[in-house]
Design a protein around this nucleic acid. Sequence first.
DNA 1: TCCTCATTTCGCGTAATCACGAAATATGGA
DNA 2: TCCATATTTCGTGATTACGCGAAATGAGGA
Lengths: 107, 107
Amino acid sequence: MDQSYAIDAFGALAHDTRLQIFRLLVQRGPAGTPAMEVGRLLDLKPSTLSGHLATLKRAGLVQAERQHREVLYAPRLQTVNGLVRFLLEDCCGGDEAACAGLAPPPA
Amino acid sequence: MDQSYAIDAFGALAHDTRLQIFRLLVQRGPAGTPAMEVGRLLDLKPSTLSGHLATLKRAGLVQAERQHREVLYAPRLQTVNGLVRFLLEDCCGGDEAACAGLAPPPA
DNA sequence: TCCTCATTTCGCGTAATCACGAAATATGGA
DNA sequence: TCCATATTTCGTGATTACGCGAAATGAGGA
């Protein structure tokens, strides 16, 4: 994870529709969801949806796999993890004590 | 954390200079860093810096505290934590097994 | 091969974002 | 009070992102 990848990823998430799409894919799980179904659930025009999925894919936040006629989209949670690590890298100059309790793990 | 807050936060991080500023503040720690020092370290014009700090503050990613003549900026890591939780909310439809190993905690 | 469904690419008008100079405001010292 | 330092606000021109209709492409099935 470097600066420019992180910017692409944050930029991809910084949009109402794309954030909805990503969260939907997270909830749907790793098996993937057909693009068309995403569009139907969120009421999106095909070209608009396609553009947003492409943006998310370019940013490494989702992956696409063709399954017969459909394209299944699934989230890449490793990228989310990479973003967090990048953000908190060398937190408090490496001083564990100063950092403790500032960002408790999601669990 | 709701959708529109998350969008503001991701949007704030989706910018080269702002991402640098935020990471710098994370590394500097919770005691805070004077705005001017941030500007000097990253070579930013005062008005540009001020605008970016305001954006980060509006997004809840940093907090500002006046200390005599200077304004100290410190990161709010709870917001980062909130963003991650929001992103991964109801991951895999709540199926722990399907979700396991997809996003190992940063630690 | 021909047709249809699923998805992507292109093009355009509109709207939001950016950097930065200049001016305004806040704070404490002489 | 007057001034210097630290920071914010305002205005402007240039770049970039958005939604979406129309057309193109890809992948089976008849």
